[in-house]
Design a protein around this nucleic acid. Structure first.
Lengths: 337, 337
DNA sequence: CTGTTAGCGCTTTCAA
DNA sequence: TTGAAAGCGCTAACAG
């Protein structure tokens, strides 16, 4: 009922091999022949069965994208960008969402991507050695997003330096007690930002000659509610901070709300800076660090596709790309009064 | 280098047919034989090549999910839910993001899903007859999310009634001039909510005996910025509304901001109600209509998988499921002063 | 430039 | 309950 390559061959009066060549745009096909094949294919509404092609060629024209979340801003942007780039290149996108810790261990255990992708993209996951091994054993090019590792393609921002920029900004505004709202670095679902942004925060304090006060660091779990709770704790301190650095905009939103609910003003009583520059942050008048998510995703996807297309999968070319971030100063971080 | 079914057969001392049967859990395999095969497979770290299996069986164990956006709350929730359900059932998720109008027409033209999925899920797209035909011609079960149509599985909420509930709520609070911030119903990327929510708005006004004033309806394009702009227009009216119904929470966020920037208070001067109940809406103290996105997505995915598993693809069973929404009253819609 | 042919690695009759 | 064998619909030598 649905046309196969044989139907097209018969229709065009050529062999199936010629059909295959013509349709894939291979060289060494006479223009006239190619036209005839193309027309036959169109008339029969033919498309090649991807599975037969994959089985015969060994190529899957599919890339697996592994993410820890899909419904968070950063990852949604990544998915959108990668999907578009793959579609453009004629590749399928197989999406793998790890979900929770259990899903994560099952994933690396079973490796559902085995035998079904030409390459893999992993977004912002803190991977242990066993997980890197599992990835390597796929024997396919791997691209990392938001982290890097020797021997892997990657694109990321400098989270440490960027966080430091954020905190430096608060320091320059005259703040001496600066709170941190971060992610859980021990979480089995840990992703990369919490680690590095916290380091940047600590670096900045040290550089400014400020004491690191563990009481000023609270967990916000990268959620709005987490940000609120952490802020409440910070405000309850005997000597509360006059400024807060939240490792994500979401947590910063929670902070803004909690500060105002406490009857305090932003930035006069407490200044706030976030990280990401989500679209809502402008609305919230939130100072933040802007990161070029789409550029990161596009960079590593493009290089991954090139690597897949090349015959030498070990010649990575430009391996580790670090993209610049930008301090965006808005109303939430005005100078200290 | 990587084990094939033959290696397992040799290792277990059986034929490849038996390996195939044992590994897929088919009946009529002696327990002892099955154990031997399973052990051999484990030892060799064997997994079947999905493409060979698909070619031979005709089944793809893959579902295509078509969305107009991936980085909006509703769709991100849908993707997360569908991905989890498919993974649980051992299915792959092939994600198709339409992107823009051009991408949309190319998509339905080329139908990249052809020959690669067992079923299709389409989320909140306003489809024309040609597009429905393209879907039907795939000859695969199709599930619709956020819309329905005769002969297709679907799960949705009642957007008309829900919008009416929102506007009724404002009417009951004493409002007589109620603005609408909606989506573009003529947009080629139109998705379903704008149409129905506007109808619900108009129904509610009519039921309350209020005149429909076209000047009170503005486009917010389902974005925060669009919501701001639309609100500005509404506030500039000679006789501005005392309440605004935004067809999405995002647009409502923009409205809240714009109202306050104009020096007005919410809800005393202008009340606002949104639609969706995104996580941020609680933070914003935004009244809204809560819709059970995950339930919708799970409902249609489950039924789609059942349909795929059944041999009679025309026996849809429970076809059209409508899930309840809930009015969530928060601070943005207090009684009119 | 084009055709012939041998697989790719499974599933599925059909027989035993 | 198991095995033999015929495909599934392509791609990729190889030959001409």
């Amino acid at each position: 009922m649905v046309a196969s390559i044989e139907d097209v061959a018969r229709h065009a009066g050529v062999s199936i091999a010629t059909v295959s060549r013509a349709l894939r745009g291979l060289p060494d096909v006479a223009a006239a022949t190619r036209d005839r094949v193309l027309q036959a294919a169109t008339e029969l509404n033919y498309v090649a069965s991807p599975f037969a092609a994959r089985l015969a060629s060994g190529r899957t024209t599919t890339v697996g994208l592994v993410v820890p979340f899909v419904n968070r801003w950063f990852f949604a942007e990544v998915i959108a960008t990668v999907e578009a780039a793959l579609r453009h290149a004629g590749f399928d996108l197989l999406l793998y969402n790890l979900g929770d810790a259990q899903g994560r261990s099952r994933f690396f255990d079973v490796m559902p991507m085995r035998k079904r992708v030409d390459g893999v993209l992993v977004a912002s996951l803190v991977l242990d050695d066993a997980e890197f091994s599992a990835l390597t054993e796929l024997n396919r090019p791997v691209g990392l997003l938001g982290l890097d590792r020797d021997g892997f393609l990657s694109a990321r921002i400098d989270d440490v330096a960027s966080a430091r920029t954020a905190v430096d900004h608060l320091v320059e505004a005259g703040h001496r007690r600066i709170g941190l709202i971060g992610g859980d670095t021990d979480d089995p679902m840990a992703f990369t930002p919490p680690l590095h942004r916290r380091d940047g925060y600590r670096d900045a304090l040290q550089a400014a000659g400020l004491d690191a006060d563990p009481g000023l660091e609270h967990l916000g779990y990268f959620t709005v509610d987490g940000g609120r709770t952490a802020t409440r704790r910070l405000l309850e301190l005997a000597d509360p901070p006059t400024a807060i650095f939240a490792e994500s905009d979401e947590m910063a939103y929670g902070a803004l709300r909690e500060i105002r609910d406490a009857g305090l003003r932003v930035p006069d009583d407490v200044a706030v800076i976030g990280f990401d520059d989500q679209p809502l942050s402008e609305l919230m008048d939130l100072s933040t660090i802007r990161q070029p998510v789409a550029d990161e995703a596009l960079s590593v996807t493009t290089r991954l596709l090139a690597l897949i297309a090349s015959d030498d999968h070990d010649n990575l070319g430009e391996t580790e790309v670090v993209l610049p971030t930008e301090l965006v100063v808005r109303g939430s971080s005005g100078p200290r009064r």
